[in-house]
């Protein structure tokens, strides 16, 4: 295997991680909308945006190795 390519195991971890990030973003959105505590509300709001960036970071890794850049 070329050292620059992604292994099947790494691809699995990337996909699992993206699923985790997606779930976390949705949980945070729910928390930001439903929470009664202003500080928690603010925290969830910020976290949802930050974790969506992390989702995109993982997406960029996939793009980098797929040879097709559709996401930026």
């Amino acid at each position: 295997m070329h050292t620059g390519s992604v292994s099947t195991k790494e691809l699995s971890y990337i996909c699992d991680s993206m699923k985790n990030e997606e779930t976390l973003v949705k949980l945070c959105v729910h928390g930001a909308v439903e929470s009664q505590n202003p500080q928690l509300k603010q925290f969830f709001y910020q976290l949802s945006h930050e974790r969506f960036q992390d989702y995109n970071q993982l997406m960029n890794v996939l793009d980098h190795h797929s040879g097709q850049t559709q996401y930026s």
């Binding site: 292994s7 971890y13 991680s17 976390l24 928390g31 439903e34």
Partner: peptide
């Protein structure tokens, strides 16, 4: 409860990222 769920999720993700990090062969990954 909501905070606990998110906290648990972050802890679980930290464990999974640790495993993923340990298993990754590609430097970028």
């Amino acid at each position: 409860d909501m905070a606990n769920i998110v906290l648990s999720e972050l802890k679980r993700m930290s464990r999974e990222y640790t495993t993923a990090c340990l298993e990754a062969a590609n430097p970028m990954v």
